[in-house]
Design a protein around this nucleic acid. Structure first.
Lengths: 204, 204
DNA sequence: GGCTTTATATAGCCTCCGCTATATTTCTCT
DNA sequence: AGAGAAATATAGCGGAGGCTATATAAAGCC
């Protein structure tokens, strides 16, 4: 094999992290065994310990590497919709019924949150991430406001937190009861927070 | 002891359920051991199995018996505040920094939610609970609207879901970063959803 | 091509924990 | 009071899983 050691190592690391993400999401952080994760990555538990030292080490590394590409993708897709309700609908759909492997993303977020609840270091990292997300959302909304697309009834500096909160909370309820929390509910909430005066009926 | 068997049994059952709630909240459902729970209840693991058959049985029984008294208490306390922002502040505080053992209530909710995510029967039960909560909130808000205290920009039938979502989502962020998500943010969000036109400054 | 270093695999120890089988205590009923 | 039933306690099995010690394989280096 013409692979350098560094490449080999990096590849294994990536595989392990990806497998860890999938397993943690599927079985829970506690429910996922190191062996299962290593298997998924076509490696063995020994390599996990060579790389991360412990299960907690693996989790912290994951937390560190874990950029929610899905959030980025969602924003991108959102921009393509012409009308404002269309954009909001796209946003919600990416959250509620994510395409492809996006589903495990949301689940993992919750696992990490609950873990962070009990571990100060993880909490700090997650807190940073959420700060970033709020800031991104706030900036984006600031532009929309400036361009007159939305007229939120709240100050920009709280808008990020509120939108994130609403989406998370709606998604949680949606998971328990998809029929009760549908797109209509989500759009109403987003529109209220953003000051979108529901111009016409939403076209699906 | 002049205790009937039924009383003895009921007492033990209560103790076990209460201990289970505390332990599940503190250590996580997976992290809490049956022995630890039994110890907390001044019983032994044997009695847990006599009562509930399995750990899952214990959890389902807990889910069944678990009425969030805190939610009720919060509503009651809320009603005492004279001004609308005062009421909303009380609501938020009961969520964000619950008095007494209320803290473990919120944590347990999250544990249960995550568990329900992976177990259909638990999911159905939790879904029912959340439906109830939404209905309660909706009814309460309907009255407020009727009496002119609030003028929500959304229909009554979605208001429950939106308020619950906002509170859950804000609380989650608050847990990670209490300074970033403070009362000001929460009040702004609640006011926006409820159409409260922030009459004056909030008096603390 | 050999020697060293790095990366991954193998095997197994040890603790924890869910659970069961059985003993013991507490109430019930006559 | 004493036999039977119900409730709780005791002891320990068995498996899972985190982790370590060590062996093998792959790359670097001269």
């Amino acid at each position: 094999m013409a692979r350098t050691q560094a490449e080999r190592r990096a590849d294994t690391r990536d595989r392990l992290l990806q497998a860890a993400a999938a397993r943690f999401a599927a079985d829970g952080i506690d429910g996922a065994s190191i062996d299962a994760i290593a298997d998924d990555a076509d490696r063995t538990s020994g390599s996990v310990y060579a790389h991360f030292g412990s299960k907690e080490g693996l989790l912290l590394a994951l937390l560190d590497s874990w950029k929610n590409d899905v959030a980025v993708a969602a924003t991108a897709e959102m921009a393509t919709a012409p009308t404002m309700p269309g954009r909001l609908a796209a946003l919600w759909r990416n959250f509620a019924d994510p395409p492809n492997d996006g589903a495990h993303w949301v689940q993992l977020e919750h696992e990490l949150w609950l873990y962070a609840t009990r571990h100060a270091d993880a909490r700090d990292q997650l807190a940073d991430r959420y700060r970033d997300i709020r800031r991104t959302v706030r900036d984006e909304m600031g532009q929309w406001r400036a361009s007159g697309d939305i007229t939120p009834p709240v100050a920009d500096d709280v808008l990020g937190a509120l939108l994130v909160a609403l989406l998370i909370g709606l998604e949680m309820q949606h998971r328990l009861d998809p029929d009760a929390i549908d797109e209509r509910v989500a759009l109403a909430g987003l529109a209220a927070l953003l000051g979108v005066t529901e111009p016409t009926e939403v076209m699906t």
